[in-house]
Every structure is written in C-alpha cells, then in structure tokens.
Nucleic acid binder design. Structure first.
Lengths: 250, 250
DNA sequence: GCAAATTTGTCCGTATGTATC
DNA sequence: AGATACATACGGACAAATTTG
C-alpha cells in the first residue's frame, strides 16, 4: 500500500492530518476560491493528498470548526464563510467554564464591547449620515414595540442596533467583532444561574439616548455621544455584577 | 448492535458528532475541569457517549481546533488553554485569501490594533506605574540591540511591547486580542508577495516615543500619548498600502 | 537502555443517511 | 420513484508516540 510509503517519506515529524489541512487551505488559495465555491469530494482529496478518508475527514472537521470549510451532508464540501463563529464558540465556553473567577471573563468582555463604540466615537460621528440616523431610530422604535412582546424581536433589534452603530466606519472586522462579543454576552449571561435585572424600558431609553446624542453632536463635540454609550453599558455591566454578587452570597 | 438504536432514537436531526462535542463540553463544565486537566480516553468517551471511536475523534478534532481540548499523541486528551488561536488561524486565512480585495482585511486589522491602544489610552496612563514604564523602556532597548541582529529577537520584543502596553488595564481579553491581531499581521504581511519597507530604526524610534509620551503625560494629558500611538501605526499602515499599490501596478 | 503498556494516529471495508436529478 | 453521488457512522486492525518498570 503506497500510503504507508508516504507516511515514511514524511519522516514522521508533523501529523498527516495537519498536512492534509494545510493541503486543503493551499488548494483554496492557489485556485483563488471564494466562500461558497465547491471543493473536491472527500474521496478525491483522499487520493490527491495521499491520505485515507478518515484523515481527510478529521482535517476537514478542524477546518469546518474555523469556518474555513463548510460541509453539507449528502451534498458536498465548500469554502466556508470565514466568519468569527469559532471566536464566539471559544469565548462562550470560556465564559461558562470560568464563572467562578468572579465572572471576570464577562466583565472584560463588556469592556471590549464598549471600547469598540467609544473608541471609534469620533469616526462614527463624522461618517454618520441622516440615512443611518433614521435607521438607528427605526431600530429603537422596533425595540420599543417588541418590548415585552414575543421575545426574539427585542434582542434581534438590539443586535442589529450595535451592528448598525459601527457600520459607517466601513470596517467589516470591527462590525463582526462587535457582533461576536454581543453574541457571547447574550448566550452566556442567561447561563450565569441567577436572575439578573432586565429592565427593557431602560434599555430602550439608553439606546434612544445614544441616537439622540449622535443626532445633536453630529460632527461637533463627541462628549455627549461617548457619555451616552457609557450610560448604555452601565446596566450591562451591572447585570454581570449582580450575577457575581449573587454567586458569592449563595 | 445498540449504536444503531441510538441512531434511530436521535430521530436523525442533529449530527451525532455534534452531540458528542456537546457531551464533551458538558463533561468539562459539570466536572469543573481546568485547562490542563485530563479527559477520558477516546475509548472511554466512545463507550460513555454511545458513539464509535471515529465519531469521537472527529468531535475531538473540532474542539481541538477551538483550543477547548488539547490532544497529545500517545499521551492523552486534556482540557485546552482556551486561547484565541482559532481567531488567529481564521483571520490569517481570511487575510491570505482576500489579497485581491485591495488588502482591505489587513487595513481593517490595523485599525483594530490601533483602536485597542488609542481607545484605552486614558485608562492605560492612569494605571501605569514606574515598573511598567521601566519594563517598556527595557523592551525598546532590546529592540534597539537586536536590530539587524539574528532576527527573531526584534519581532519578539515588538510583540512583547504591545502586550505589556495594554497589560496595566488588567483586562486579559484585550491583551489576548491585541496579541492575536499582532500575530495575524506578522504572519500575513510577508505573504503579500511584495517587498514592503521595513525600517527597523524608525520602528524603534516610534516605540520609544510612545514610552516617552507615557512617561511625560503620566496621569495628565493623553494627547501626546495618543499621538505617539497614531505615529506608530502610520508606517504599519503604510506597509499594507505599499503592498496594495504594488499589487495593483503589477 | 530495553520492553511492555497505554493512548492517540492512520488505514480499510462496509453500511446508512441525505440531497439531487 | 429510482438512481446516483456524497457525507455520516461503524468496527477492527495496525502504526507511532509516550510513559513506566
């Protein structure tokens, strides 16, 4: 069997699965494939890269976890969306695992969320136009309406708001990171085991205050805007704090 | 064979591999394991979770890619370090794949790197003590010495500098993200295919200026400090720009 | 330093589930 | 509905790496 040969030729240093993974990535890069483009079947990859189906499958699974590759059962393997899903899953697990550590992981996370919006305040205001402002107001209205409604509407509007807030920067990475941390926060907080305050009216008001400040300040002073953002994150931080104190008391 | 039974009972919806992955994560959480703690062997997991060893292995590989689990050949499986390695690998691949898109991925990345340090400037300065300052100066001296030396010393000092700069914040997540983006930048730029300027003397000077500004400003005005950071990232941005222009011209 | 034991790595063959035509 | 192509899952065998006696 020739595969044994290849095994010998590899001089035993790195793992075959690792080489297969590199091979698949190289294939995508050399052929300049885009997200959604089809990849060769597992059998073809197996033959081309000189590894068994099992090794190819394990390699594909690691790339799938990073969203470099996407597998559709009974259909085929494709180039992945290259999203930050791996970051979300990793940080979510970290947040769940280290609840004991004074919930520091989560409070650090809120710091980062605030950093994205406060640190980019100036640039957000200068590139914000009236269309964006209108869309932001619309989302706040959506939150207002779906408040104490079915449920999913409120959080979805919240998520969309923070995506839209940094959108005028034209920096996709910041937008994706911002959403990734929003996702982690939203997933982890309900698992903290204690009931935390969740004043939806206050949340709506805080979001509206951000848009109001943006509308007023526009290209002028950014202080009111950054203050509004800080006030928005105060209750977010408080929820983590409440969970921490309840956990320490219990 | 009873495994066939389980397959039926799952009603064919979710994937077995996925369930195994969830099972392993649940095991870690319920037993409150920490990074480095040993996990059951593949055979044991296979028996406990009611799946074949192949399926367990594939599930373990996805968790390994997220650094939730760490596998050591011939030794065993352990709880992972929960690092941001998946983010680095994912963004690196994204940067390599979308070179054509005017290198926007990389310029967005530099924006984020600068955001971490500029956006946290105030908090960095207020919690910076003389020990930190001395350590920062020492790293700049290291860079100066290893300039045009063996090679690895320079970049390593650069990496350590940016880690140390945000360290006084006490926010581990920001430190890890900062390093993750530094890693991606350092890995991707050499692959951009064109020789970009790499003035090490200028780099040293820019880093020293940051520490000088921090030393002078301390708890006072942050303007000089943020300006020094901006000046540091100007040449970093220029390298990406040069690669872009060379690519467009060629 | 050798040998045995343990654990992960790789391979193969086969059967089943899933989507498309 | 049938046929085809593909991924999913299984089980067993052997190779390679690591630890231990």
């Amino acid at each position: 069997m020739e595969s044994r040969q290849i095994l010998k030729e590899r001089q035993g240093r790195s793992l075959l699965r690792q080489e297969v993974s590199e091979g698949i990535k190289r294939y995508i890069l050399e052929n300049k494939l885009r997200p959604g483009d089809p990849l060769p079947t597992e059998s073809e990859l197996s033959a081309t890269l000189g590894a068994s189906r099992s090794s190819v499958r394990e390699a594909v699974k690691t790339l799938d976890a990073l969203d470099i590759v996407e597998v559709r059962h009974g259909h085929g393997t494709y180039v992945g969306r290259l999203s930050l899903s791996a970051l979300v899953e990793g940080l979510t697990f970290r947040g769940l695992l280290s609840r004991d550590d004074d919930f520091k992981v989560m409070s650090d996370l809120v710091d980062v969320r605030e950093l994205f919006e406060r640190g980019m305040a100036e640039r957000i205001l200068t590139s914000l136009d009236s269309d964006h402002l209108r869309s932001l107001y619309r989302l706040v209205d959506d939150m207002e309406r779906s408040k104490s409604g079915d449920g999913t509407g409120f959080v979805e509007a919240d998520r969309a708001f923070h995506a839209l807030l940094v959108e005028p920067l034209g920096n996709e990475l910041i937008g994706q990171l911002s959403l990734a941390f929003w996702d982690v926060y939203t997933i982890v907080v309900p698992h903290l085991g204690v009931i935390t305050s969740k004043d939806e009216a206050e949340t709506v008001a805080n979001h509206r205050r951000i848009v109001d400040a943006a509308h007023a300040a526009h290209a002028g002073d950014t202080d009111a805007f950054t203050r509004a953002i800080a006030e928005h994150y105060a209750p977010v931080r408080r929820r983590v704090q409440e969970a921490r104190e309840a956990d320490a008391a219990g």
